[in-house]
Computed example of a mutant assay.
Amino acid sequence: MGAGGSRARQNAMRSGVVVLGAVAFGYLSFRVGFKPYLDQAQEAMDSARDPDPTAAAAAAAARDASDDPGAAGGDLAPSKDPAVVLRD
């Protein structure tokens, strides 16, 4: 009876290794096959999360240069016009 139990354990371990190998192969196939799409998605997420640092620095410099809020470059009310939103 001891030999039968050992054989069952070996078969179970072999099956587990095969399943893990299949999952790893599937994951790598997915990553390689969809790499261009995953890269585009990552770039889109990064650009949405991290605005253009040069534009932010220029806006901060213009805001700091003006002590008068009514002067040019001061704080203005946000525009609801889609063309202005897309331009900025």
Score class of each variant (00 low, 15 high):
R63C: 00
R31V: 09
L38D: 02
A3C: 03
R63K: 09
V32A: 12
R31M: 09
Y27A: 15
D50Y: 12
R49M: 08
L28H: 06
A59Q: 07
G70I: 00
D52S: 07
G26N: 06
P51Y: 03
G33W: 05
L20T: 15
S6Q: 15
A55Y: 07
D88E: 14
V17L: 07
R9K: 14
P51D: 01
L76E: 13
A71S: 12
S47H: 06
G33F: 06
Y37V: 12
D75W: 08
A8E: 13
S15K: 13
L20D: 10
D64N: 06
A8N: 10
L76V: 14
V84R: 15
D67G: 10
A48N: 08
E43M: 07
A3G: 04
S79Y: 06
S47E: 11
A58S: 13
P69K: 01
F34S: 07
Q40K: 15
S29P: 00
S6R: 14
S29L: 14
R14L: 13
A24N: 09
S29H: 05
Y27C: 12
A55T: 10
R7F: 08
F25Q: 10
K35Y: 03
G21A: 15
A57C: 09
S66V: 12
A3V: 02
L38R: 09
M45S: 02
L76Y: 04
A71F: 01
R63G: 00
K35L: 12
S66N: 13
P36K: 03
Y37E: 15
K80D: 14
G2T: 11
A72W: 00
A83D: 13
M45V: 10
L20H: 08
D68F: 05
G73C: 06
M45R: 13
V85S: 04
A60C: 01
A3R: 10
D64E: 10
P78W: 04
A71V: 05
L76N: 08
R49N: 09
A12M: 11
L28Q: 10
A61G: 01
G73N: 03
F30D: 04
L76W: 02
M1R: 13
M1Y: 04
A48F: 07
A41G: 06
G21I: 12
R31Q: 13
L38P: 00
S66Q: 15
